[in-house]
Nucleic acid binder design. Structure first.
Lengths: 224, 224
DNA sequence: AAAAGTGTTCAGCTAATTTTCAGATAAACT
DNA sequence: AGTTTATCTGAAAATTAGCTGAACACTTTT
């Protein structure tokens, strides 16, 4: 999957690129609107991510022009919170979805997954680990048929763990994926969330699914 | 692989250079920002390592200017712990990653490997010596299919040994690579770690894989 | 306006890890 | 054989990672 990212803020661009590459996607970056537009017409992308505010040509302009040229590639618009009013206009001009900054990386991933999901390649949207399930459509989490109520951060953390089963995820990785790139939290915050999750999904069951790997991080799965 | 290192602390610069050259990389050093910037535009590097605090021109300034000139070379920023807040700004200006001082040399190497890893030349991330394997993705270590649990220092030491099979590594080399350049440990600490590793990966097997070379150091591999 | 829920921090605790110490072993050198 | 020096070892001491109950500031619900 090849993605075009047009974003003038190098920090955001690099961190998105890094994250997407970890998900085995190929990412081209353009740091201004003109460069972005040129790439968009020259290359074949599965998805384009456009920042709204860009030097040279705005995301909306790019979007508009591409659609006029019958380019059907899915487009995701990034906008600052103050620009939310532009949402309507953005979707008008042919964008398929939008995401307000700042966002947690996993939010972006979720949008991307939704946009490039083709009816044919039925993606699995119920994640399952042992007798624990997480339904990404209705956000329902169950263990052994028992419904479990989670707060949104707890849910986001659990989803991240479940998307990387058996992998050890460090606190830093968790921080970078589950929290917005602007927030700065202590490592202890993650410990607290892990405890909360354990209280909800492990407590009362015969074996735990969240494992601590001291010195490295956490992983999800039945312990072998 | 040619690397530019811009660092005004001679001690750190030299020790990094020495370490990288051992890894068969060519290293140019600049001791101030201006010299560094000039080298960066004159030469072609595969990677640049910039200290944040530099006489003449700061690492950020260099980074910024290079990016403005469309220089795409990966940049790794070194920052003191007290300057962590600058992380945001650093990544803003186009740096690809950052590392806080003090660090163990192997941490730096890991970042470098990540930054210059090209999607095409799938690097091997499972190290193997005889029937001993170390998976750098999930930190799993096995000998003859038996999973072995290591603490993080034990793991770091074993990884270092396994990345240099059959080479004799002196206690000093081990100290410089596996421990942060600030920590000061007795040589005996390494002896203790070697014993711990032996207890976990050699004990109970018909032949040992960790060899002592009296007067020189240690090496890993089946003894011939 | 009160109550309940959420995200985050804090301080104290425990247990594992890291480091040191002091005596034992073993190789190398007279 | 005796001495010297490097390495090994068991155990103690110091340090740190992770867990926990509770507090705090905010939001949302009632």
């Amino acid at each position: 999957m090849k993605i075009l990212l047009v974003e003038d803020d190098h920090r955001i661009a690099q961190s998105i690129k890094k994250g997407l590459e970890q998900e085995r996607m190929a990412v081209d970056i353009a740091y201004d609107g003109i460069e972005g537009y040129d790439l968009a017409i020259d290359e074949e992308y599965s998805l384009m991510i456009l920042d709204l505010m860009l030097p040279g040509m705005s995301g909306l302009e790019i979007c508009n022009k591409l659609r006029q040229n019958k380019n059907q590639t899915p487009i995701l618009i990034l906008t600052a919170r103050s620009q939310v009013e532009d949402k309507v206009e953005g979707l008008n001009k042919g964008a398929d979805d939008y995401l307000t900054k700042p966002f947690a990386f996993e939010e972006l991933l979720a949008r991307i997954r939704a946009l490039v999901r083709r009816p044919k390649n039925m993606e699995e949207d119920v994640l399952t680990i042992d007798n624990l399930t997480l339904n990404t459509n209705n956000f329902e989490v169950t263990r052994d048929k028992n419904k479990i109520k989670l707060s949104s951060k707890e849910y986001a953390l659990l989803e991240f763990l479940m998307r990387h089963p058996k992998q050890i995820l460090s606190k830093e990785q968790i921080m970078n994926h589950v929290w917005s790139y602007e927030t700065d939290i202590l490592p202890n915050t993650i410990e607290v969330y892990i405890r909360n999750l354990r209280n909800k999904i492990d407590k009362g069951f015969s074996y735990p699914l969240i494992q601590t790997v001291r010195g490295f991080g956490y992983k999800i799965g039945k312990n072998v």
